[in-house]
Structures are given as structure tokens and as C-alpha cells.
Design a binder for these strands. Structure first.
Lengths: 339, 339
DNA sequence: TCAAATTCTCAAAGGGCTTTGGATGCATAA
DNA sequence: TTATGCATCCAAAGCCCTTTGAGAATTTGA
């Protein structure tokens, strides 16, 4: 059943039927009801491809996922983010396209996306401190929102970010309040904007208490389990091990725990751990949380970012939307007073 | 630049230009070269929407991701799978659509996908022992392949599965060879086909050695870290704790380690652990692997499944393709002789 | 009552591609 | 010379919708 057939049945023109169905005002109420009922009765659904061709809009959004061959970690946060965003897209009738591309073909991919009008907008993940994707997308006039933001230039585009600086400051302060003074930072890769800000938060907490920042206590790597393990193992074997650790992810924190326990020590007693918790669905701890953490749901972020993007697509005149979310501090069993 | 403009420039008809570009034989070689060069020169790319509309094919594939509100875990395997599949799709010029839908709207979603011809095929994830999606898709005549397969009926559709039965048998045998006799199984949810088969493998290994299956050593749940932790904690506090554990995922295995260590015991010494390892990119251990495991890359599976699906779409006459992959046994540091 | 303003409806023109069903020109074969 | 086959190329129909620009019908205001 297509529009032509339906309008023949109704003895109306295609125009009228189309307008009736799309809620345009220039069609009478009785006509509209007749049309809508007939559409339901004959199970009419407009063809997506035809609609797209006619309107030049795709009602689709892309997420470009770079694949780095050397450093081939796939972001474990991705699935939760996608789940949140996907729900929202579905609610608004948008499609979600995932493009997996080699790291150095990203630019080409975005250009192609913009040229072909295959999608109405994109979401940019994990921006670097200086990220070429942002000026590129501005140039291409492809609507976009950034999950995170970019050091310095963060005014003329839409983004949603967690307040990484304040949350790490808060995490550090929490440990300082417990009397810890030697606090290690197991940060993410510091070329990433979020990690850079987290470090600033950590450092400013220390400095405000008149403490010095000890570079030998600061680490930066992909936030995986063995990273936490290896660093902690090393730290615990030094003469002057820290009494507390701030980590950038629960996975890394689990590595810290494994190392601590392997040394016959106890987390929260011999070493306190505060972690950033993205509330990944597969790393949830029921009951009293295992880790004291600053937490902010990445799934919620995905959902909200999708809304922002759709809003930008539908109302480009509105200007950029920017949101800075504060993370919650949740006290778990991984912290205790300094001994 | 569209086809009409390009053909005007070339003084050819749209037909000829289209045919030249799509490799049809009824166009002369010199003409073809002329056309291809002009296309490059003027940066001509056919419009996707128009192509789709004209051909009735979308060159897109969907993955339907159900969201269960109660049990809201998002599969951590998903991102690696998608990464593998996505690379392949990109290589073949296919788009990947992710549809996140509430659990009980899946059927509707598949129907809609089939009706609207928005995609040329779908991949079915994580089949249950009895999975309604499979007969549904057969009915809808929407090409599909299954990651895993369905107990019993596994002949008339395409699938790719790891040999879960043999790999768990192998894992169990490995422990038996080390002298372990009380071996716990921390399985996934046993409504899932894969988990069911894993249990069969585990049981058959025991039975073949004349051992009995002790139901109090068998557990079934989502494969998360606290699951491993909780079960192990409980097991270790019994009178007769097992000397070895087989788990269904590295995440769960990490929970086992945490519990063992917390009890002041040592993995591979006081309790041996063999896990199934999907080679998730964010759970990789460099050097000598932490865990003895049976492993099979879920990313590779994604990649191959995408190939199979595309093949089925392009050559539906070929009939179903079925592949059963054997997992590798990798010896790590988590196993040792029974004491 | 007539003109003006509203309301409703339509035919037709896109949007950009593929594909059908011929037409044309030319070389080969009878 | 005429018929046959081949290699090239084309005009136009079709895919299915949205939107423009106008016309017809109805209502309103003076």
C-alpha cells in the first residue's frame, strides 16, 4: 500500500492525504480523521527511502567509532552509552548508525557522512585536548554534539560533560579529609580532555592544602584492570608507598584491589581507593558499594546527548546547548582513615 | 553533482553513465574509462537515498538490542562484537543500524524492520534455548544469521557458534587431569543456549571419569564480577569447598580472585580457576595470562558473522551457512595441581 | 448582495537513481 | 546486396514521497 493507492481509495489527492497524515493545518478535520482511519485500516506506512529522498533528511544519527590497530582497545563504556542514546533515538523515531573506521580514516568518514546526507547529525566521543574533529564538523556544517568538550574552545558548539575537575577534586579532598597525604592518581590517557581535567582537579585539591604534587605518584594509561594492578604492585613495593589512590575507572580500581590483596593487605585499611564510576551496567555492586566513588551514569549521558542532538537538528537556530553535570560522591568500603 | 549533470557534461545519457559506473557489460571500455574519470574529477557520488529508493535495497544491517528494565545489564561483549562486525560492514559498503528496544517490543521491531525494508538483514544475538525470534524471522523472510544457535532446531538457518560444549568439557578435563575432583561451575544464565551447552560439557567431562555431578556446585547468573565474588565467598566458607572453579567469563573470574584473596588464599594454589575468555579488548592481560582459559574472540565472531550475513543477502539461493568454532585452551597462572 | 478572506483540495514538479525496451551504427556472413 | 549479430547508447518509466502554486468552495464582513 503506497500513498497513491491510498489516495485513490479515499478519492483524494496524494497531497491531501500526505498533509492529513503529517498534521498540516490546511486539511479539514473530518477529512483528516477519514484519512487516518483508512491508513490504519489498510496498514499504510510511508516508505522511509522515499521520504528521505523527498525531504533530504535522513532521520538518522551516526556514531563514528575509530579503530586503532596498535592500541586496539574498544571502549567498554561504549555499550552503555549506546544503550542510553539508542533508547532516546527510538523514542524520537531516529535511527542510529555506527560507523567503525580505521583511526586515520575518520576525517574521510565524516566528510562522506556530510556529503551524502546519510545522517542528520553525529555524536563525537572522547574528545582530545585538541581535537581536529570539532573544527572539521563545524566546517562541514554537520550538526554535532560532543560527549565531553575541548580544552579552551568550548563555546560555539554543543556538548555535555561531567565536571571532571570538580569530581576529582572532591575525590581527592575526601581522601585528604581522612588524613591521607600521599595520594596516587591513576589517570586515563592524558591526551584526552577528560583526563587532563581530572588531573587538574586532583592537583588543585592537593595544592589548596599546601601539599606538593609528586609526579612519581601520577600515572596515565588506558583504564583497564592490569593497569591498576601493575601500578599498585609497583607502588606498594616502594619505600614510601602512598596510603591512597584515586583511579579513573572501576575496572582499574579492581586491578588495584587485586594487587593490594595479593600483597596481603586490605583495601580501605592499608590502602584507600576512590574511583570514578561511570555506572557501567556490568560493573554494578549491589548493596553497600565496594568502592567509594564519584559517579555519573554514562548511560544517562548518552540518553541526554541524543536528545540534545535531535534538538539541534530540529532547531538549528537555537544555538549551542551546553551542560556540565556534577558527579555524586558515594562512600563505599574502599576508603578509611590514614594510619 | 548528480547523475543528470554528470551525463550532460559527458554528453551521454544517464543510463550509460549509470551502467558504466556500476560495471555493466553493455558499455564500451573507452566510454567506461571516460565516465569513471569524469566521476572522479567532478567528485560525483550517487545519492544513497535515491539508490535505495530505486533498488529497494538498503545496504544496511540491523542489530536489535533488547533492553530489559528489571535486569538492565547491557552486554559488555557487545562493543567488541560490534567492532568486529562494523569493520566488515564498512569493508562491504554496508551500514550498521543499532535498534535499542524494550524487551517486549522486539517482535514488533523485527516486523517493522521487515515491512519497511529499511535493512537487508539482521543479526540475532544471544539466542535462548527456545528462541521465538528465529521462527519469527523465518516467517518474515528477513535474512538473518544467529550468533550462537538454538537447541535442537539448528539446520535451516545460518549461524556461527563457539563449541561451548567441547570447550567446557576441555576446561573441566584440564582440571580433572590436575587431580581436581570437586569442581564448581559458575555458568551464565541457563536459559541461554550457550550456557546450557556449557553445562553439558562440564557434566559430561565429570561423568566420563565416573564422577557425579554435585548440583550444589553449579551456579547460574549474569556473568558479572560480584557474581564470582559472592559465590566463591560462599563456597569457601563451606565444609567441603571445591578445589577448582570453571567460570563463564573473565569478569566473573576476577570476582573469584577477589574472594579467594580476601580469604587469604591464593589462586592457582588453593583454588584453581579456568574461565571462558571472549578476548574482550578491555580485559586483556599482557604476558603470561592471568587466567587459564578456553578462548575464542568475540570480535572475530562479529566480523565473520557480518560476512556470512552479507553473503546470505547477496546470494540467498546458497542456503544456510553454519560454522562451529573450537576454542583454544590457554594455560595461565590461575591453575595448579590439586593439593 | 458582492467583494474579500478563509478553508479545503488538487495537479504537477521535484528529489536522484535504476532499469526496461528499443534504436542506431557497424561489421560480418550468406 | 540483404540479412544477421553485436556493441553502444538512449528516452522514458518507475521507485514513493513532499511541497509549491493555484483553483474551487465556503464563510465572513459591510
Amino acid at each position: 500500500m503506497n500513498l497513491k493507492e491510498l489516495s485513490n481509495i479515499l478519492n483524494l489527492s496524494q497531497t491531501t492525504v500526505s498533509r492529513a497524515l503529517n498534521g498540516y493545518p490546511e486539511v479539514g478535520e473530518k477529512t483528516r480523521i477519514r484519512v487516518i482511519e483508512a491508513a490504519r485500516k489498510y496498514n499504510y506506512h510511508p516508505s522511509y527511502s522515499a521520504k528521505r529522498l523527498a525531504m533530504g533528511r535522513s532521520h538518522a544519527v551516526a556514531h563514528v567509532v575509530p579503530q586503532n590497530p596498535q592500541h586496539s582497545m574498544i571502549n567498554p563504556h561504549f555499550s552503555d552509552f549506546i544503550a542510553g542514546a539508542g533508547e532516546t533515538y527510538a523514542r524520537y523515531g531516529f535511527e542510529m548508525l555506527i560507523s567503525v573506521v580505521p583511526y586515520d580514516e575518520q576525517e574521510q568518514c565524516y566528510r562522506e557522512l556530510a556529503r551524502s546526507r546519510r545522517v542528520d547529525g553525529v555524536i563525537v566521543h572522547g574528545p582530545y585536548k585538541e581535537d581536529p574533529r570539532i573544527p572539521l564538523l563545524e566546517n562541514l556544517k554537520l550538526p554535532f554534539v560532543v560527549h565531553g568538550r575541548m580544552e579552551g574552545k568550548a563555546t560555539h558548539y554543543s556538548w555535555l560533560d561531567v565536571n571532571n575537575r570538580s569530581s576529582f577534586k572532591r575525590a581527592t579532598n575526601f581522601l585528604l579529609d581522612l588524613g591521607h597525604e600521599r595520594i596516587a592518581l591513576l589517570n586515563g590517557v592524558e591526551e584526552m580532555d577528560f583526563a587532563f581535567r581530572r588531573r587538574l582537579g586532583y592537583e588543585s585539591a592537593l595544592l589548596e592544602r599546601g601539599l606538593t604534587v609528586d609526579p612519581s605518584l601520577i600515572f596515565s594509561a588506558d583504564m583497564v584492570e592490569p593497569y591498576g594492578y601493575d601500578v599498585t604492585k609497583k607502588l606498594l613495593s616502594t619505600e614510601h608507598p602512598p596510603s591512597a589512590v584515586v583511579t579513573s575507572s572501576v575496572l582499574t580500581a579492581l586491578g588495584v584491589v587485586r594487587a593490594v590483596q595479593e600483597c596481603g593487605l586490605q583495601v580501605g585499611h592499608d590502602l584507600s581507593v576512590v574511583t570514578f564510576d561511570d555506572e557501567l551496567s556490568f560493573l554494578q555492586y549491589p548493596g553497600v558499594p565496594l568502592f567509594t566513588s564519584v559517579r555519573s551514569s554514562i548511560k544517562d549521558a548518552g540518553s541526554r546527548l541524543a536528545e540534545i542532538l535531535i534538538d539541534q537538528i530540529n532547531h538549528p537556530e537555537k544555538g549551542p546547548i551546553q551542560e556540565l553535570w556534577e558527579a555524586d560522591l558515594v562512600v563505599g568500603r574502599s576508603t578509611g582513615p590514614c594510619r
